[in-house]
């Protein structure tokens, strides 16, 4: 057991080094890419993007007297990594929940890939290709790792009641799904745990599983809620590597994070929320200089990105 975990540790460290190199390279490329991918003229809150996949307008949500979310206008660029930052209680997760149908907005409208999503139940939002993960990792404990992935595949014939009773009708599709799941497990280095209950995985492995599971849906856009929360630095690098990889495969990524340094290296665009509102948005380099952001969120102690605070 101890030998095995030692092995696993060495693996993740090795992977982390690779991922770190990738992240550094990505950060270096970020500036040039931002100018081409995000050809924007304005950088303030609500700025227009050349090719937005998600557009939200006047989205509001109150809990009693507290206005948790009050977003005037937000566009998320297709094929880019956008990070949503902000102090605790800024309304980031609530905004996530609203956009993905897990909570009901008091008012507002938003469209994803051109079609309106407001008021749509969560499962339909996911079927449209907008898939989210959760801040507190939600593993399906008593399903195996493989089952977790296979579950996520969209449009399964065998999920219909009467069809499910006749295995020949869905076996072929199931085999294809399993093949794709194997690939993802390998990519996320979970292949050795494929038949273990997800509940036996470590916290970090569960984060990887959750990300892999979201990808099984074949989403056009993934929304990751604090994918790096409670994860050791080595695995953080690995997760960042995976996020960059998603974008390189043409996916749109929106993720919530409160560690500013993590965000800077890989983001094409940063949106900062405080007290339910978007107070600033722009390229990473610009955002960390923004006085409103520093004031609301970073505080006076902030160093340069990638500096000693990491």
């Amino acid at each position: 057991m101890s030998v095995e975990s030692e092995d696993a540790r060495r693996d993740t460290v090795g992977e982390a080094e690779v991922a770190q190199e990738r992240a550094v390279a990505a950060a270096a490329a970020a500036a040039t890419r931002t100018s081409s991918l995000m050809d924007v003229t304005t950088t303030g809150p609500g700025s227009a993007k050349p090719d937005p996949i998600l557009v939200a307008d006047e989205v509001r949500r109150s809990f009693g007297g507290l206005r948790a979310v009050d977003v005037g206008h937000l566009e998320v660029q297709r094929g880019a990594i956008t990070s949503l930052i902000g102090p605790n209680g800024a309304g980031k997760t609530t905004f996530f929940n609203l956009l993905t149908g897990f909570d009901h907005a008091n008012s507002g409208r938003w469209t994803f890939a051109g079609s309106p999503l407001a008021g749509m139940p969560a499962y339909r939002v996911a079927r449209r290709g907008l898939v989210r993960t959760f801040q507190l990792t939600k593993s399906l404990m008593r399903l195996t790792v493989m089952e977790n992935l296979k579950l996520a595949a969209a449009g399964q014939l065998g999920e219909r009641f009467f069809v499910s009773l006749v295995p020949p009708l869905w076996r072929a599709q199931e085999a294809k799904i399993e093949e794709r799941a194997e690939e993802l497990l390998e990519r996320f280095r979970l292949d050795r745990m494929r038949d273990d209950f997800a509940g036996t995985l470590s916290g970090g492995q569960r984060k990887l599983l959750e990300m892999a599971r979201a990808l099984m849906v074949r989403p056009a856009m993934v929304m990751l809620d604090e994918p790096m929360a409670g994860v050791n630095p080595a695995l953080t690098e690995s997760l960042l590597g995976h996020i960059v990889d998603l974008r390189d495969r043409g996916m749109t990524v929106l993720f919530v994070e409160h560690d500013m340094d993590v965000v800077m290296g890989i983001s094409d665009w940063v949106v900062c929320m405080a007290q339910g509102r978007i107070i600033a948005e722009g390229p990473p380099a610009e955002i960390c200089q923004d006085p409103a952001v520093i004031d609301a969120y970073l505080g006076a102690h902030h160093d340069e990105p990638g500096g000693e605070s990491r």
Partner: peptide, 28 residues
């Protein structure tokens, strides 16, 4: 037959965590 099919997999995933099932496009 039901429980070893994809239908059963969705059913068991709802037992484990229905929000996850929802986030993966299942009509819980």
């Amino acid at each position: 037959l039901l429980m070893q099919s994809p239908w059963g997999r969705v059913i068991r995933s709802i037992r484990e965590n229905e929000d996850v099932a929802r986030s993966l496009g299942k009509n819980v």
